[in-house]
Design a protein around this nucleic acid. Structure first.
Lengths: 131, 131, 131, 131
DNA sequence: GTGGTCTAGACCACC
DNA sequence: GTGGTCTAGACCACC
């Protein structure tokens, strides 16, 4: 157990952009804030923002044009892959935490299933089989 | 979005004890570290530890005995409730994150189901209900 | 025309390692200097060295082990590709400079050929055809 | 390895003029910028420019006329020699770099030949000598 | 104004 | 000791 908050800032910045991409809030061609702007808005050092932007560039998420700014440049395939990776991460966190609480495979699935069915009745039907 | 991540430390301390209880690593009657010990081990302020211990007392999780220390005092019912609460929390986090990624009810369940079946084959059988 | 010396330092560091790899002076498994050591030896800032090392990591040239150091980790295919890339760079520089001096295709080749034949007589024979 | 890269500035200035001469961008009789003008345009110290101009004078490339300026004064023979020297320099750089990369005589020639033939098909024919 | 590079130096995590 | 992250701030190149 550590009280350190975990992720380094530059990675949090990247994850934030990834989420916005996956949700469609950002699309190919969009301009993202300049490094200085971002740094001021979120009170982080411009170098930290630059590192995040640079890494996104090497991930083929953005493209940087000198003197103009940084723009989303991502193709559908890459976006799909990122979405899948993020889902896997969330999924594994869920399963591991539930196991740590002493739940087993069957329960871990059923709890989701029950939870979903509270919100939308037909879901459970669909999953448990057509009857 | 803020980079100071999540939970206040005293709450993290409480959650840590709850996890240990649910996993059985701590049981009724066990002595937990003195506030001073805990503060030193985890490099946190003694006041923060004190707040955590006090709140656990009011949650009927521990009991502090003057001059002796702090001991786990929890009944089965309370423990079961805590386990359920923690599971619900994890579960809701999972579902919300998946929705934020654009997944829908059915997929959210199936992904867990598929993930579990990779690890232990019989799980999938049990759930899809061949009986 | 600019009098700026050109390549950024971190790139020069990378190129230096690439050359050593291609020449066989460094091989998979070798430990390279720690970031601090390198920074002191060449009087550059540790951050600059780190950037170079980090980029080499993402190029699959080195691997960094926390608390232990940085090690060459490159497979034959990657090494071959790097060698080819470096050769292409040198080659294009040569051709462009010669064109800028007003030489044309045929001369550009013959000059190399003549130059080589001064050093090793058989070369020219081989290239100009078996006769 | 040093990060202060190569040539002193006054030599870069000379090389720049040599290139322009060889390419025909400058010819005998042309007036070149005043030392002060040059220094301002390229943001270099006037003393550095003066040194470059003085050396070009002793190389019989330019002539300075008191109160009028500096003019190209070069005969054909000298120009031809300069062109040859510059080519030799570029050529030797190419050959040495390729050798440092582990290429051998034959390859060093063929790579140029192949490279040229990609751009202009007839080149390769001419050289391999089908006649 | 926008990004790119670099330095100096702090503080941390892992060994 | 070794690498990892971050800040503050300088100076540069390109627009």
């Amino acid at each position: 157990m550590d009280f350190d908050t975990g992720q380094p800032i530059y990675r949090q910045i990247i994850d934030d952009f990834k989420k916005k991409l996956v949700r469609g809030e950002l699309q190919a061609g969009d301009k993202i804030p300049s490094q200085r702007e971002y740094a001021e808005n979120y009170r982080v050092n411009p170098n930290t923002v630059q590192r995040a932007y640079r890494e996104m560039e090497s991930m083929n998420i953005v493209e940087t044009v000198r003197g103009q700014g940084t723009f989303i440049r991502i193709d559908q395939e890459n976006l799909t892959r990122i979405r899948g990776d993020m889902a896997t991460q969330v999924l594994e966190y869920y399963v591991n935490e539930m196991k740590a609480l002493g739940y087993e495979g069957k329960e871990i699935i059923e709890l989701v299933s029950n939870h979903m069915s509270k919100e939308e009745v037909y879901i459970n039907d669909t999953v448990s089989g057509s009857k």
